[in-house]
Amino acid sequence: MGPNETSPLTPLAQEALEALVDTIPSGGEFTYEQAYAVLAEKEDLERPAAEDIIERLYDKGHVYEVEGKLRLTDYRSE
Rank of each mutant, 00 (worst) to 15 (best):
P8A: 14
L45D: 06
A16M: 08
K42E: 14
E5T: 12
T31F: 14
V38Q: 06
L17V: 04
Q14H: 07
Y36F: 12
I54M: 08
E5R: 11
G61A: 00
H62I: 00
E46F: 02
T73Y: 08
P48K: 05
D74N: 14
K69S: 11
A35V: 09
V38C: 11
A16H: 06
N4Y: 15
K69Q: 10
E65W: 02
T23A: 05
S26W: 12
R47E: 04
I53W: 12
A49V: 12
A35N: 08
G68Y: 08
V21D: 15
E5C: 03
L39C: 10
D22R: 08
V21P: 14
E43G: 03
E55L: 15
G2Q: 14
S7R: 09
D52A: 07
E15D: 15
A19Q: 05
L20A: 01
L17G: 11
E67S: 11
E55A: 13
R47H: 03
E33C: 06
A35T: 09
L45Y: 00
L70R: 04
Y75D: 12
L70E: 03
V21F: 11
E41G: 12
L39I: 06
G2W: 14
H62T: 01
P48T: 10
H62M: 03
E33P: 06
Y32M: 11
P8T: 05
A40Y: 13
A16C: 14
R71W: 07
D59N: 06
L20S: 02
F30V: 09
E67D: 12
K60G: 02
L39G: 04
L17P: 15
N4Q: 14
A35R: 09
K69A: 13
Y75G: 15
E15K: 13
L12Q: 14
E51I: 01
E43F: 04
F30E: 03
